[in-house]
Amino acid sequence: MRSFFVSLNSEFYKSRKTLAFWSAILLPLVICLLMSWGFISQAPKLANNSAQILWFRYFTAIFGVMGILLLPVLVIYNTYAVTNMEYKGDTWKSLFSLPLPKLSIYASKYVYIVFLTFITMLLFAVFIILTGHGIQLIKSELKFGEYNPNQILFRSFSKLFLSSIGIISIQFLMNLMWNDFLKPFGIGFLFTIMGIITANVGWKYVDYLPYAYPNLAVRNIMQTKGDFNKMLIFDQPIYNSLIYGIIVFIIGYFMLAKKTIK
């Protein structure tokens, strides 16, 4: 276990100056700031909405963009960036010649990518709450303060986070297989588009396509139409996402254990 935590610590140390790390923090901030600017500029039109509807409109605008396209792309990029650090410096060989179990090295990388995604989701929830209340400070007619969205925001972003686990495992596996940007990115992007289309047309097998899960999570939340009690965190796509995540993680480990470091 100690090996796992030192490897995880090292992942953080190595990547703290990279775009992958900073994009996990800055992306939610930038999107929330842009969206709040939009709300501020449209304040007269929105002033008649109740606080609950305001929050719903505000957060679903961000949530929609995030879940449909940004989350899969962010995951695709983060998995590439974290694994590419080793390809770029030709450091796989030095990592595997250290007295550390291969499972620790592998699992720490995976967990670090999961952690980056989790941080992004958490920051989205935090920044939405902060900017929502910030909007009211600037435009007092938008009564964000009259409704407490915290629980539903954290539940929604937890759902979105869990929906990305399957994609993380698949992208991680592809990045371990190929020292290449185009293949994992191209395939991942193609599946993301496929996920969007199949989720929108309601393909009967969409529950088996991991790249559609963020989209399905967004649709599920949108369907509540503000009545968040109807929202379930764990539904079939989320269970499937976790099952994909675990199975592909295990396959990836056996592939890595047999990997020839030429």
């Binding site: 490897s7 610590n9 090292s10 140390y13 190595k14 990279t18 770029k88 410096g89 450091t91 250290l98």
Partner: peptide, 20 residues
């Protein structure tokens, strides 16, 4: 095998972290 985006010292610190 070195990380180009880290300084020489940081490369060694990273190895220190891994090796305790």
């Amino acid at each position: 095998a070195i990380y180009g985006h880290l300084t020489g010292k940081e490369n060694l610190i990273n190895r220190c972290i891994l090796l305790g």
